[in-house]
Design a protein around this nucleic acid. Structure first.
Lengths: 261, 261
DNA sequence: AAAATAGTGTCTATGAGACACTATAGT
DNA sequence: ACTATAGTGTCTCATAGACACTATTTT
C-alpha cells in the first residue's frame, strides 16, 4: 500500500532522446523556486485502559501551544517516507517499535499551526496497555482517557482527561485528529483484525470482547461475539486456561496470523 | 470534517504573559529554516462510461513523465486548504465545480517524483458522464477506462485504457492512486449515498443498479437491490416515467437529500 | 402477439440476538 | 454449597437471494 509501483513504460514509448531530455530537465530543476508548506506526521497512539480508550499525549515544552497536550509528532525528513517518519516518531518519542500503523487523514487548513503553513499526515497506532505503562518521563507524558461525545462513526472532536477526570487542553487541532482515529478504528473493527493489537499475545474471548466494547463504546452480545470470532478463523486456541479467577476459567486464544494485518 | 476546531483554552490556562511570550516566539520563527517537501493534490475524477468505470487523465506536456498520462493535480498554495486546492484543480483543469470530493490517501515515498520530494494528497471526485463529455481540449484530455485487476477491496494498482483498448502509460504512482480511489469507492458504496453522484438528477432503479455494478465489478441481485434502496429512505419517486424504451417504462427516482452527503 | 423490462409476492438460507442450560473454577 | 463466568444448544427475527408471477410499454 505504501509502495507505489510505477509500471515501467514499454520500450517504444521512451526512446533514448526522451530519457536524455528528461535528464537535462531534472538537472536544471530548482526545488527552491516556490514557497512550500512544512509537512509533519502526527501519531495517535491508542490503547485500552480500565475499560475505556486512552491515548498517549506529550506536554509541549515549546511554542506554539506551550504547556498544552499534543499527540506525538514531528517533521517529515526529506529522505524518509511518511510511514517511516511515523515509526521514527513513535520510536524516538515513545520508545515503541514494531507497532501497526495506519494512515488516517491529512490535515492541512492554512491556519492550523500559527508558525507557518503546516500540513500534517496523521497516523493511528495501537498498543496494548502493558507496553505503554513501562515508558518513563512521566511528567511530560500522559496516557489520557478519551471521551467521545458522539456515537458510532459520526466523527468529530473528542475530549481527553487525566486520571482525575480533569480535562487536558489539546494543542493544534488534535481533538479532531484523535477523533478521526476513533472513527476509523470503529469502522475497521468489524472486518479487520485490529482488536488483537490492543491485547497481549494471549487473551480470552471475554477480554477481546471488552476491548471491542471499549472501542465501540457499547455493549456487545456475548453469544454472537463468540460465534463471530470463532467462525472468522482468525483465532487459535492455545490449550491454556486462566487461573485464579474465582469461576470457571476461560480458554486462552491467540491471533492466528499476525502477518496478514 | 475539514474544519479543525481548536477548543479555546480556559482562561486560567493562558495568562497574558504566556500569550505575549508566544507572540514574541512566532515573530522570531523562521519558516525557511528547514528543507521541506513540495505538497500537491491529485484528483481522481471517476465516472461511469458504457458500463464500466472511467477516469479523467491529462497528457503531461512537461517533464517529468512528459507524454504520459496523469490524474489532474497541482501544487498546494500557501493560503488554501487541501480540499480547496483539489476543488481549484478540478475547476481550472477540468472546468468542473460543485463536485463531491473526498480525501483518499497521502502518498509520500521519497522517490515518487524525480524532481524533488513531493508529497501528494489524493482526492476522489465523482461526476456523471454527461457533465464530463462536454469539456473541450480533447487532445490532452482523455476519459480512460479503468481496468481493475483485483476483486473486492483488495487494493493495488490498476490499468487504464483508451477507447481502442490501448493501454495508456501512467505518470508517477498514479496507477496506485487510481486504485486507491476504486478501493474506497467500493467500500463506501454500501453504506454511503455516493452512487447518485455518478448519475443525473433523475434515474431509474435499474440505472442506479448498473452504476453500482460498474463500481463493484460484479452483478447484483435485482430484487434485493430494489428492496435495499427503497428501504434505505434515500430515494424519492418523482412520478415520472421513462419513455421510448421498448418495454414497460420504469419510474424515475431522485436522491432525497443531496445535502446530507 | 412478441419481446423486454418493471414491479410484487413468497419461499428459503443465513446470521445475529435472546435465552436457557450445563460446566467448572475459587471461596 | 455458593458465586461467577465459560461454553453449548436452540429459538426467533431480520435480511438477502431465488423464483414465480403479473404489468405495461414498443414493435
Amino acid at each position: 500500500m505504501s509502495k507505489p509501483r510505477t509500471p515501467k513504460p514499454p520500450a517504444p514509448r521512451r526512446p533514448r532522446d526522451e530519457v536524455e531530455d528528461e535528464r537535462r530537465f531534472l538537472a536544471r530543476y530548482d526545488a527552491k523556486a516556490f514557497d512550500r508548506p512544512s509537512v509533519t506526521v502526527d501519531v495517535v497512539l491508542v490503547t485500552v485502559k480500565t475499560g475505556g480508550l486512552a491515548t498517549l499525549l506529550l506536554r509541549r515544552a515549546d511554542h506554539p501551544f506551550k504547556g498544552r497536550w499534543a499527540v506525538p509528532g514531528g517533521f517529515v525528513r526529506m529522505a524518509e517516507g511518511l510511514e517511516g517518519a511515523a515509526a521514527r516518531v513513535l520510536r524516538d518519542k515513545c520508545g515503541l517499535t514494531g507497532l501497526w500503523l495506519e494512515q488516517l487523514y491529512t490535515f492541512g487548513e492554512p491556519k492550523r499551526d500559527p508558525r507557518t503553513r503546516v500540513i500534517s499526515v496523521a497516523y493511528a497506532a495501537l498498543v496494548d496497555a502493558s507496553r505503554l505503562t513501562a515508558s518513563g518521563r512521566l511528567d511530560a507524558l500522559q496516557v489520557a482517557r478519551i471521551e467521545v461525545p458522539w456515537v458510532g462513526e459520526t466523527g468529530g472532536p473528542v475530549e481527553v482527561k487525566d486520571e482525575n477526570g480533569q480535562e487536558l487542553p489539546l494543542a493544534f487541532d488534535h481533538a479532531v485528529v484523535i477523533g478521526m482515529a476513533i472513527k476509523r478504528l470503529r469502522g475497521k473493527l468489524d472486518y479487520a483484525p485490529i482488536g488483537f493489537q490492543l491485547l497481549t499475545e494471549q487473551f480470552t474471548l471475554l477480554e477481546l470482547q471488552r476491548v471491542h466494547e471499549a472501542v465501540l463504546a457499547r455493549e456487545l452480545n456475548k453469544d454472537s461475539f463468540r460465534r463471530r470470532m470463532l467462525a472468522s478463523g482468525m483465532l487459535e486456541a492455545t490449550g491454556e486456561q486462566e487461573s485464579d479467577v474465582g469461576h470457571r476459567p476461560a480458554e486462552r486464544y491467540r491471533f492466528r496470523n499476525r502477518s496478514a494485518v
